[in-house]
């Protein structure tokens, strides 16, 4: 299995890390690069190649996303949804600051059309 190079976060792109034992892909930070597709493409490719193996939990804690990042995260969720439909053990967690109702709403909207297991987690 190809190894996953962890990506360090910047002011406009989130950090992305993969915990092999927990099969958990964590995306943390903010995402508003000018070209979000360029940033997300390797992550999408990786997810496509790996979520069928032994299951995967996508753990998102993204404070702010621009619309082009929203489109990329939708693509990522589609990959997981497909895997779920094929019976793989996948799950998505959306974490948001309890005081930010817009962030909660964004998570709710992401999950509205999904059948894969999902969880909204309010953090302090």
């Amino acid at each position: 299995m190809a190894s996953f190079a962890n990506i360090q976060g910047t002011e406009t792109t989130p950090s992305v890390s993969f915990d092999v034992n927990g099969r958990r892909l964590c995306v943390i930070g903010e995402s508003y690069p000018e070209n979000a597709f360029q940033f997300f493409r390797p992550i999408l490719e990786w997810a496509r190649a790996h979520c069928d193996n032994e299951g995967l939990t996508l753990d998102l804690r993204v404070v702010y996303m621009n619309t082009s990042s929203v489109r990329c995260v939708m693509d990522l969720l589609d990959v997981l949804e497909d895997a779920h439909v094929r019976g793989r053990g996948v799950k998505v967690v959306w974490r948001y600051r309890a005081s930010d109702s817009r962030a909660r709403k964004m998570g709710e909207e992401f999950f509205e059309d999904l059948t894969l297991p999902n969880e909204l987690v309010a953090e302090g």
Binding site: Y64, T67, S101
Partner: peptide
């Protein structure tokens, strides 16, 4: 109100990136 900060910031980024592009 953190939600207001997020809202204004979102509008700013979309407007600025639209002009930029």
């Amino acid at each position: 109100d953190e939600s207001e900060v997020t809202g204004v910031f979102s509008v700013y980024i979309e407007m600025a990136q639209n002009i930029q592009r």
